[in-house]
Design a protein around this nucleic acid. Structure first.
Lengths: 258, 258
DNA sequence: AAACCTAGTTCCAAAAAATGAAACTCGAAA
DNA sequence: TTTCGAGTTTCATTTTTTGGAACTAGGTTT
């Protein structure tokens, strides 16, 4: 039912995504459980299409630059980054902490862009990197509007990344429900130890969640007042971005007439 | 000989890359000259692999975020951006013009990153975007070290983008040869009218060209002195980045003992 | 409300492509 | 010189993909 060449392609790209060093034909053959003749031909095709490139030293493979061109277009199409960046800078200046822009993809989030805090100690985040949605503030903020995804996440198993990671399905469901009511979600150090955050969803003109704004702050700098400030600032910024994108007014606080 | 599913995938991604608006199954079928049943199944597979995503409104397709993850990893692997960015900022501050980081891919260049000039008037460049190698300073600087590519470029035809575009194969060959000797190349407005630049190649530890640094300056701000300043500054920056990457000392000016 | 688009999905026999064991090439190491 | 490891090519066999047609589902016109 699914095109198998494509699935194989995705596996190969996945291997290169995870791999630290370039990968050769024999290693692919081993990892994929396929004869090297098959792999060799496949890689030749992928190379000619720019999906991978060869290390001229030893013929091993890296991901290709064509993927970068395509990936940049992918997020450009979304229009989110352009609308968000200036407001993200203001937010960073307001709270003096790193600000992140993310999208929800299946059950994980992807970091689209970062505005770094100007402080000496920051929790660096890799643009293009991922995190499990249920472990981070932006992820929970977005899951809150995708109940089906919550169940998919739960079905995949709630692995503990830190002692504070949510591992109880019902706890996750409750937190998301709360996040939906309040319009924001928190991360108290559930993905990376000592890294906290506040996340709020961004909506497009159709009222669909298309991304989230969040903060990344070392736990050592957090206290009750700061949490409150961050929640307020992040929520306002996310709403301002949504407004820029033509989103209908948030339904949260105001009760609209029936 | 080449895997045809992969080629089809590349064509589909190419269509989405060029397309301004999302594309539906029927439109793909028309553009690809294939029955819609085939396309429908294909797109379903691509979607499940994250290569494309559907517009929830109308079911049409965009490029998927997975491509962004892969693309970011692709340039991270190269290690060029990390080595180059700080020096690019210094260069921008030195000449107060936009500074670009590019790689050569087949016969075109791809923009990896930009440090914008602080001036009011700038020629904006899209990260992830392309330009024909023979029309821009960075492209010519890199072609200079890949004679086979020059011939490939020539074979594809030298289309004039502006009145100043090089359209004579021999002129391109001569310019590249000169660029190789001098260690830099110029663009006098050969790709976009009124946009000039100076480009120099960056080498890795094996002495191979892996990218280029270049400037982008409105022609109105250019004069003889500025060209000289830019050439000096760009060349020095490119060499400094190469040194960071462990490149052997440039052979250009010094005549090494036989 | 019935007929009629348009867009997309599913079916299945026919057609085409990918597969993989083995032979081959090429460099480097013993 | 031989051996080894990594990669590529070959070609009969197996496995996919293909695509016309039927089907589904919204939306629009008569």
């Amino acid at each position: 039912m699914m095109n198998q060449s494509l699935q194989k392609t995705a596996r190969i790209l996945g291997i290169l995504m995870e791999s630290k060093a370039p990968v050769g034909v024999n290693e692919f053959a081993r990892l994929l459980g396929m004869p090297k003749s098959t792999v060799s031909r496949f890689m030749a095709t992928m190379e000619s299409l720019g999906m991978v490139r060869r290390d001229p030293e030893n013929g091993r493979f890296f991901l290709g630059f064509r993927l970068f061109e395509l990936g940049c277009k992918a997020i450009e199409d979304l229009g989110l980054r352009k609308a968000a960046l200036p407001l993200m800078e203001s937010l960073r200046d307001r709270i003096n902490e790193s600000v992140l822009l993310t999208v929800l993809e299946d059950t994980h989030i992807t970091y689209l862009d970062t505005i770094e805090s100007r402080q000496a100690i920051v929790a660096r985040t890799q643009i293009g990197g991922r995190a499990p949605a249920y472990c981070v503030s932006s992820g929970k903020a977005m899951l809150a509007h995708h109940p089906d995804r919550i169940e998919k996440v739960v079905a995949q198993g709630l692995r503990p990344y830190t002692p504070l990671t949510i591992t109880e399905p019902d706890r996750l469901r409750r937190e998301c429900e709360k996040a939906r009511e309040q319009g924001y979600a928190l991360n108290r150090g559930e993905f990376r130890e000592g890294v906290t955050g506040v996340g709020a969803p961004v909506f497009n003109a159709s009222g669909a969640v298309i991304g989230a704004i969040s903060t990344s702050t070392p736990a050592a700098r957090m206290n009750k007042l700061r949490w409150q400030e961050h929640i307020e600032a992040v929520t306002q910024t996310a709403q301002a971005i949504s407004r820029r994108l033509g989103a209908p007014a948030p339904a949260g606080a105001h009760h609209l007439p029936g």
